[in-house]
Write a protein that binds this DNA or RNA. Structure first.
Lengths: 154, 154
DNA sequence: TTCGATGCAAACTGTTTGCACGGCT
DNA sequence: AGCCGTGCAAACAGTTTGCATCGAA
């Protein structure tokens, strides 16, 4: 799904929910979808303000749940009291995150094999799986060998 | 490993690190190991104060990392801006968490095959896995059928 | 015109820290 | 005696919220 399709999806999601299509919401959307890497709420505020400097922090925090609810953005919690976000270009929910503990970079890779696992484990407990995530904390090999991480800090 | 063995391990860990065995630290340890379910830092403070009412919030927060570092307690982050803790009676680090989104209860189950996932996924990226967690968000069947969750809220 | 959306700043939650006092070793 | 550990309260970070105003439909 490209950006224009995503933008349309966002607008129609807003309309369907009786929410208004405002410049601020659009600026936040554009800012999010211009990102190639994970970003924080605060970073999103900065990016959005580059597009429309009237965007406030509150609106960013009020818009993020809308974009998450509409599956346009995914939320990634790596256990750091700080949430990361990522535009959800494909609609994939079976994703594993590998976090480099040296540079904090988050890699994502498809993990379709995860699905059967979640199902088998949940049904044992009388639960219906909704989503699942595999998170791996790992050391960067280049860091251990050369004392530096080839990936820039987040 | 039973509680006495764990207590010994805690005491010797403190000694080895040149840390002091104080009443407050012991009270916090006892409080943690009396729990059968996951608990929060705030709950641990209450429990510890029942044992020694001189325990302060600061000491709880300063003791938790020690217990985690010594593998006596595991930290569980379910993406709720709130961390849960659990006495680590067996020494198992390959655990999957299944979180009921209706009642917030956390189930844990062994997932020994997780290790393979983490390895296969990390090596593709030139990383060496350190730790990993699999988290499944699921709906409680009884909630969906009867409008109530048989498990009490956390 | 109407009522949802916004910006601002204050409130809030969980956690961390500076400081002077207290108590292990 | 020395110095680590402690309680207290203030600080802190990220996020949420109340309120008066703004603006999309």
């Amino acid at each position: 799904m490209n950006n224009e399709a995503s933008r349309d999806k966002f607008k129609s999601y807003l309309s369907t929910k009786g929410l208004r299509v405002t410049n601020q919401r659009l600026a936040i959307f554009e800012a999010a979808f211009a990102q190639k890497e994970h970003f924080t709420a605060e970073e999103l505020l900065d990016f959005a303000r580059d597009i429309d400097d009237s965007v406030s922090r509150a609106t960013v925090y009020r818009t993020l749940p809308i974009m998450i609810e509409s599956s346009l953005v995914r939320e990634v919690d790596i256990g750091k009291n700080l949430k990361y976000y990522l535009p959800n270009t494909d609609n994939n929910t079976q994703v594993a995150q590998i976090i480099c503990t040296d540079c904090d970079k988050i890699f994502e890779i498809n993990a379709p094999f995860m699905e059967w696992y979640g199902n088998s484990v949940s049904t044992k407990l009388g639960l219906t799986p909704v989503s699942q995530r595999l998170q791996v904390n790992a050391h960067c090999n280049s860091f251990r060998q050369h004392g530096t991480c080839k990936n820039r800090p987040h």
